[in-house]
Amino acid sequence: MNIASKTLLITGIDNFIGLRAAELALERGLKVRGLQTSGKREKNTTNLDADLLIGNITDVNIAQKACQGVDIVFHAEQLSEESGDINKFREINVVGTLNMAKAAKDAGVKIFVHLSSVLVYGFNYPNQVTESGLLSGENNPYCQTKIEAESALLKLNSPPDFNIIIIRAGDVYGPGSIPWVVRPLLLMRQNFFAYANDGKGVSNHLYIDNLIEALFLAVEKEPSGEIFNITDGQETSWKEYFAHLAAIEGLATFMSLPKDELKLLLQVRRQGQKLLRKKADILPESLDFITRPYAYSITKAKTILGYQPKIDLKEGMLRTHEWLKKTDIQELI
């Protein structure tokens, strides 16, 4: 599809990924409409030249209204916490996703790009796992509901009129990233950060602009019904990734603890915060996310989409550092 002058709907436009997608889409000449859940976060989108709607993706009427006159949908709204009630995850990640896709199909939208995650493979998977690899919910609500959403969406795919494309994103970092920039930095500043298992394993980092570039490539190529792993394509250890993050703020290196021991400490911390009626700043389950062992293959994206990640970890961290110098990240939590 030639995207010039097309209308793009972005769900979750006020969130980290949705906001950057909107900015880059506008630079490319697309007309942008955004759907955001809460009006309280409107300041994120104040300067966007976009048509903004406020409402929940589970609302049938809102979904229908948002999709009218739209050519492309980028569905970025999701519940992406490390743990919690699976029914809440399912309501947003599955029911809400299907609601938006059905509304898009009924409205005549041509392309529906769904933001999924490499976490559909679970926490233990073979090295260079491809899109045809075994999926595993790992008894984790995020992993499980992202799997369910993909399966349900693909049943709606009906080319050439309605084309579903699924992007399994890696660990998306950059300005505004809560899990991979803000939260670990806040823990580092409190001297409460430690490597699990000496930071072994592979961080499949993905700079935000590389992700959005893959999105545009998918829209232009229109590979209907296809799924793509998208990362920066670098095999960076978890220790190296977090060392890069610490270095941009001049923070010291950190100690390492066995994963099980560190998980126990986080359980104690969570109980203490619960007694003080504070929201837990890090969950024990997060360690499963930062001890994944291997890299994911992005060969399919390179071959079919022509995807080549342009921003490496060094450049991505430099850009993140510039953002950090003018941002109070404490306010983002």
Rank of each mutant, 00 (worst) to 15 (best):
G34E: 03
V60F: 09
L211R: 02
L217C: 02
I282M: 14
E42C: 11
I165C: 07
R41M: 11
A152D: 13
K88M: 07
A66Q: 05
D85M: 07
Y294Q: 12
N229V: 00
K6R: 12
A22M: 04
A196Y: 12
I304T: 15
N2I: 07
E315W: 04
A301C: 04
Q308I: 15
A196F: 06
I57H: 12
L98S: 12
Q128T: 00
D209T: 14
C143P: 10
A21T: 15
G306P: 15
V219N: 05
L24V: 05
L332V: 09
T291Q: 00
Q36D: 12
A104E: 01
T291K: 06
E91P: 15
T303F: 06
E249Y: 03
T299Y: 06
P126M: 06
I13P: 01
L48E: 13
L275P: 14
I329E: 05
D312G: 03
L135Q: 14
Q144V: 06
C143L: 07
K279Q: 12
A247Y: 03
A25N: 05
L187W: 05
K274T: 14
D209R: 12
V172D: 00
S5Q: 15
S151V: 14
T58K: 12
G174M: 05
G34N: 03
D161Q: 13
R189L: 15
V60M: 05
S117L: 02
I227C: 04
T327H: 03
T45Q: 06
L156A: 11
P223I: 14
N124T: 13
V113T: 10
E249R: 08
A243K: 11
H114V: 00
H321N: 12
L245K: 03
T46K: 08
S256P: 15
E261I: 11
G69N: 09
L186I: 15
Q273H: 09
Y121D: 01
P284M: 10
L154H: 03
Y121E: 04
I13L: 05
L313E: 01
I3C: 07
I62F: 10
M1G: 09
S83D: 14
Q190A: 08
R20K: 11
I290K: 08
L305M: 03
Y207H: 03
S237L: 04
D14W: 03
T303Q: 13
G69K: 09
W180L: 05
E27M: 03
E249D: 11
L287G: 05
L257R: 07
A25F: 10
V118C: 11
G122F: 10
V109G: 01
L332P: 10
L26E: 01
D328C: 11
